[in-house]
Amino acid sequence: MSGNRFRSVGVAIALVLLATLPLWVGNSYYINVASQILLFAVFALALNVLVGYAGLVSLGHAGLFAIAGYAAALMLQAGYGHLAADTAAVVITLAASAIFAVLALRSTGIGFLMITLALGQIIWGIAYRWASLTNGDNGINVATRPAPFGINLTGAPGFYFATLLVFLLALASMAVFVRSPFGASLRGTRDQPLRMNALGYNVWLIRFFAVLFSGFWTAVSGLLFIYYNQFISPQVAALTTSAEILLMVISGGTATLLGPVVGAAIVVVMKNVVSAYIERWNLVLGVIFVLIISFMPDGLVPGSVRLWRWGWQTVRARLDGWISSPVEEHGR
């Protein structure tokens, strides 16, 4: 029970820190970085539903993300209000997710991955080539940010708070989902799909709903993204985006609640830092992928803990060698 209390205190401190972040950070550049982290964390949480809990690796999520962004941007451009544009964007993305699911769930494992990759590339191709609709490479500007209940989101702090709110909602929905019977069913289909089927579960339908759930939060993060940048271009739908989000999920540790959030923070910070010094973000991204896979296949968070313990034990063994002492006995 003390563990629970410990956790509650931790959550409370984290909440207070997050809620007061603009006050102690001050500089709007850093507040914006925080907003980026939160919005990509929502995206990473959404992808983790599939990668972590369903065992289905999607490489086409950038496509869904872009569909939400483009749908809203196009409707705003056509003169619709924010509420209408955003609602329509979510509905359209859900429909697209359903199509993704119907096609990609013909298969699991590599097949699922390949099909989602191909579907993601279609979206990219449409964004890039169907210039009369999407304005091609020039992208679409989003003139204004919404002002829900008259609250102004133009400034960095305002937008940060809105993003934080959405992020917390997403996180809460994940926390509930993971503990729910449906969450347990989904993890069951990941570990033993045949057994689940023999126990009376409709494995296909469970996965289908998981894709929709993931698609919903992907859409929401896509909307946050276009409001943050006030711009969308085909680059958003590129495979690089899907890969980055996957890196967030993997690096933090899959099938954990906070892993994708930590991963989003790491990748966003790194991208901002790296981009400030060199142009070679893709190279860095690639090297990180290869390093993580080769040395920390279980994710950065668990992997670092393991490396740290290993390092600490090595150091300690050395120390013990030098000072053969009674300290050791007290230390244990």
């Binding site: 490489l59 993997i250 190279l283």
Partner: peptide, 30 residues
């Protein structure tokens, strides 16, 4: 040296080949 160690693990294989693709792309650009 890279893929062999990941035999049968789809996700790591995908990430590894994807990472290599990004590396090659940037090296070619340079």
């Amino acid at each position: 040296f890279l893929l062999r160690r990941l035999e049968g693990q789809i996700l790591p294989q995908v990430l590894l080949t994807l990472g290599l693709a990004f590396i090659i792309a940037d090296i070619c650009l340079m």
